[in-house]
Design a protein around this nucleic acid. Structure first.
Lengths: 350, 350
DNA sequence: AAGACCGACTGGAACGTTCCAACTTTAGCG
DNA sequence: CGCTAAAGTTGGAACGTTCCAGTCGGTCTT
């Protein structure tokens, strides 16, 4: 009969705490926010009352009046790619350092769901947005960038965009990969590309450019792949169906490289004795001793940190001109690359 | 001189839209929420005004009055473990099906940061909480469960707890692993455990129980490990320092198994010719043909879906008695397990 | 002893929504 | 042509905070 008592006990508010502690709601607010100008006696009373009631501040109400959330939203394109594990860890680290909370969403590599995920974050009024390897188009990013600070991670962004970006030099990385193979004596170096993935275009261009510069134009073989293992497997299948076989393959990323390796091993080819494989991202996967994949490293943890830092500059320091940070990738040689087989097929037929 | 005009253009609110469309804010609200009882003319006017202003509803304000957010919060213990990629994907799928948004946080396998992460979600007033492989203690979980619907994933939870749970039968899974090795002819089956990780205790118990039942008590060798690759590596090192060496090793999870394999290979042991290794979780990692790790499968995508479903029942269907769903694990045999070496060290010395 | 000042505390007005009761307008009907 | 019903629309009161302009004692200064 008494609705107040029989209801499923609604969450206590600042008012309940105030009543219990015998002070005003303003005072409770001050204590919760950790303001100095409160007498020890009141502070203690408030704290006790809050603890007894199990009071938890309502962030929504707070953000509403402050018009800011102290939350940075992160849209991660693919949570299954171990690469993003590192990125995320860098982001969290730096964010907590700067007093920000982090919320993640993912688009599962689908444009449409990415848009949805980003929309969710925006409706929450996050103070800033990090897009890690987004697949949505530049226009959309630009549009979003006009209403909230945005940092694009791992995807080259035109300097005209209103968004910041933190990327590695994909083109240079791709060239490193090709040069490494060339230095080992390879000529027939193929590329399984990353399709529409973030930075895939640049890696493709870097590959072609490098091949051309090394005078290997006629050996350019480019098959379509993607940033996942099955795509790498498919790409490798396509390579296997063509003659002559390449002696080295530069895969769009580590996952893709793993798929390719599987296909090659399945076809009875030895790695790197028959065919060398090099990946990109230098994920924990590549580092597994059992895998030991040669790869191009990008400092993902640091890049995550930088992204948060850039956001911070915009939000709290009032920076307005966009910045575009490009970090240098580096080559990590492991056991999936080596000299080409002594007697390449073509030579035998002479 | 005119602060309104020179300010960095604050986000448009429902009032701005109302003014522009020449209607009341209530009407705008109705249109935005998609209510039926609005004339086509008004609806169109509102929609146009909203589009022109780039209006985006403020979810905080809405939640404040509705006292619900339509958000489920997910705390993931370790985003670097590919296992959680699947879980998360199942969660997202089901959530979007039921009209809920999903926000992730992670504790990076540290209790303290988990607590913090969960606190963040609670301050946002998420409608429900999923804890995927949490490390925080049962008491805390119970306490949280009393203020908001909670589903614990991948971690056995006492039936007395106010939280729901969705787990696989870790004990049975561990027994499967041991039985599989035994069936192949192994007797010296060691276990690298998962330390304080979710479900690690049960896997440990399953191992011991099974060994005992098979009459292999004296072969029980249990070293401490963890749910990461380096921990598996360390555990394997410890095993390598003891005599006799085991002929099979059951690792706490796939990551741990990978670390162990690395250590064994480094020590010159062939897998599975010298030593068999079996993991747990059947992650995408294990499935990589190049890795081809024998593992215990748990249906992670489905488990993620179930977790959301359970939450939904509590939030929208008013269920109050806790449920504890336990799904059956299954054995996936791949290439890291095989018969023990023909001449075990001990036999030679006879 | 009067004024100025300080520190601790308070009430009311926001913040951007939704909800509800009440108000118009239009339509239907005898 | 008046009455009722339905459809469409509206303003004001929440929601749980923070912020701001004060109030209220008390202490210091001259």
């Amino acid at each position: 009969m008494n609705p107040t008592e029989s209801s499923p006990r609604r969450r206590p508010t600042i008012r309940d705490v105030a009543r219990k502690a015998g002070v005003s709601k303003s005072l409770v607010s001050m204590v919760i926010r950790g303001e100095e100008k409160v007498s020890a006696r009141s502070r203690e009373a408030v704290l006790r009352a809050a603890a007894e009631l199990g009071y938890r501040p309502n962030l929504m109400a707070r953000s509403l009046v402050q018009r800011r959330t102290k939350i940075v939203g992160v849209m991660v394109s693919d949570l299954r790619n171990p690469f993003f594990g590192d990125v995320v860890s860098g982001i969290e680290q730096q964010a907590s350092e700067l007093g920000y909370k982090v919320l993640f969403t993912t688009g599962d590599r689908q444009q449409e769901r990415e848009t949805e995920a980003i929309e969710n974050l925006l409706e929450l009024w996050v103070d800033g947005l990090i897009l890690a390897g987004p697949r949505i188009d530049q226009d959309s990013i630009g549009r979003i960038g006009r209403s909230v600070p945005v940092v694009v991670l791992h995807r080259p962004t035109p300097t005209t965009s209103s968004a910041d970006s933190v990327t590695n030099d994909d083109r240079a990385g791709a060239e490193m990969a090709v040069n490494h193979c060339h230095a080992l004596g390879h000529a027939r170096i193929a590329h399984i590309d990353g399709g529409t993935g973030a930075g895939a275009q640049e890696r493709r261009e870097g590959y072609e450019h490098s091949m051309r510069r090394l005078g290997l134009v006629e050996h350019i073989v480019l098959v379509s792949g993607g940033y996942t293992e099955p795509r790498g497997y498919q790409g490798a299948q396509e390579l296997l169906s063509k003659r002559p076989l390449p002696t080295a393959v530069f895969a769009a990323n580590d996952l893709c490289a793993m798929g390719a390796i599987n296909a090659f091993e399945e076809a009875g080819l030895g790695i790197p004795s028959d065919i060398s494989v090099i990946g990109y991202d230098n994920t924990s996967l590549a580092a597994l001793r059992h895998v030991s994949l040669t790869s191009i490293h990008q400092p993902s943890i640091e890049m995550g940190q930088m992204a948060v830092e850039r956001l911070f500059q915009r939000i709290d320091k009032g920076r307005t001109e966009p910045t575009h940070e490009v970090v240098a990738p580096s080559l990590v040689v492991r056991n999936t690359t080596g000299p080409p087989p002594a007697e390449p097929e073509l030579e035998v037929r002479r």
